[in-house]
Design a protein around this nucleic acid. Structure first.
Lengths: 231, 231
DNA sequence: ACCTGAACACCGTTCAAGT
DNA sequence: ACCTGAACACCGTTCAAGT
């Protein structure tokens, strides 16, 4: 429906090829010529189905979004949010090269708003006030996507210890020094992701039902806001 | 020190030029030839100072990280965290094209660990247990960076309303329907960022001092306990 | 010691031509 | 209606040659 005469399936076929190349050899290898070759055709034969390379990449983002499985709305809201989060993480692990693109384009395509709506629903059921739902959705999706992308594209990766020591020769890092022992342990990203989901859930409960453990500065009637260290 | 004979300043000069081009015309315009032209030299004259284009982009990331101003460690930890967050957001607004690169490379360069250490320090002062500091730092940096990048590279941007309606013709979006009125308002990203920092602060307090359900006003009459490390 | 110019193997995209 | 082949204006990078 997006473009192309005759078969609209042809676009999907092209996107399949592009995704496979991205998974196997990285985003840099996704070339009009390479995709075309994989489909068994010349580069220019793609253009009826794909307006430009940018459009091809947008299509790839769409593919990732449709891969995201949405939870049954009958389930409790915390389960639904966790399912969406886990699904995003798995998608990131399957397609680490493409995932970062999700972070750069407006989340306004049908495939994207479908996910946003599912999160809105969960937040409404959690009791988040109507006027806060949109911002909390941005908080949730930013954290979940950010975590999934960071993990799968290597931001969390530790440097080679030897190289690391050489690199940081003269730098003074008091907290690193103090935490040295703890920083050696290689964490389980899966467990850490689950813990982040726990934190997120608690945060949402707090927004839905404020005036509980630790209130915001905004509704802090005691007048001892955190930023004001009474002398 | 990284490379290049004679003057090491020459590398900085090259990175200045590259950053200026990225700011003015986007990352796609950052070309060895374009950077060289701006420096007043041929493309191949860059190679003694910049191992490859990848190295050039790494250098750009380094520039962004050194632009991040680190807070005075004597200040209260919530202030320090907020300052780092705001500084990251401002950097993102100055250099939206380069910012996404921060999310794709391991945070192990000297420029990066310098920031990580500042966050570690703040978290330690907040009372986060030693074995949790690293994961909470990943939580904080992911959310702050994710927010800054999402805002500045347009992920949060709303679609053109007319086009939007056409695009979403047949899709059923129950939550969007219910929230229609609230979703029209264009939010202030600055205010939303500050609110996210509030949420983050509360989350950290909760991690530092957990297991106190309904203990708000009960055993903490000042409401300030978690925020006051001297307590 | 530093820079240039030509060259190589690529890009995305246009356009006329084929069937 | 769909695809091809040649061509254009670019890329990053290598290498011999200049001064």
């Amino acid at each position: 429906m997006r473009a192309g005469p005759a078969e609209p399936d042809r676009r999907q076929l092209i996107l399949d090829a592009a995704l496979a190349i991205a998974d196997e050899r990285g985003l840099g290898a996704v070339t009009m010529r390479a995709v075309a070759a994989r489909v068994g055709v010349t580069a220019m034969a793609l253009y009826p189905y794909v307006r430009s390379k940018e459009d091809l990449l947008d299509g790839l983002v769409g593919r990732l979004l449709t891969e995201l499985s949405l939870p049954d709305p009958a389930k409790p809201w915390p389960d639904r949010l966790r399912e969406i989060g886990r699904s995003a993480r798995q998608t990131a692990r399957r397609h680490p090269a493409v995932m970062p693109l999700l972070f750069a384009r407006p989340a306004v395509t049908p495939d994207a708003v479908r996910v946003v709506d599912a999160i809105y629903l969960a937040l409404l059921d959690a009791g988040v006030p109507d006027e806060e739902v949109a911002r909390v959705e941005r908080l949730v999706s930013t954290l979940v996507l950010g975590y999934a992308i960071s993990e799968s594209s290597g931001r969390f990766a530790a440097g080679d210890p030897r190289e690391q020591r050489a690199l940081l020769g003269g730098v003074d890092l008091p907290a690193h020094r103090r935490l040295a022992a703890k920083l050696e342990a290689a964490p389980s990203w899966e467990a850490e992701f689950e813990t982040a989901l726990d934190d997120l859930e608690r945060l949402i409960e707090n927004i839905a039902d404020p005036g509980r453990p630790g209130a915001t500065a905004a509704d802090d009637t005691t007048g001892c806001a955190a930023r004001d260290p009474r002398g």
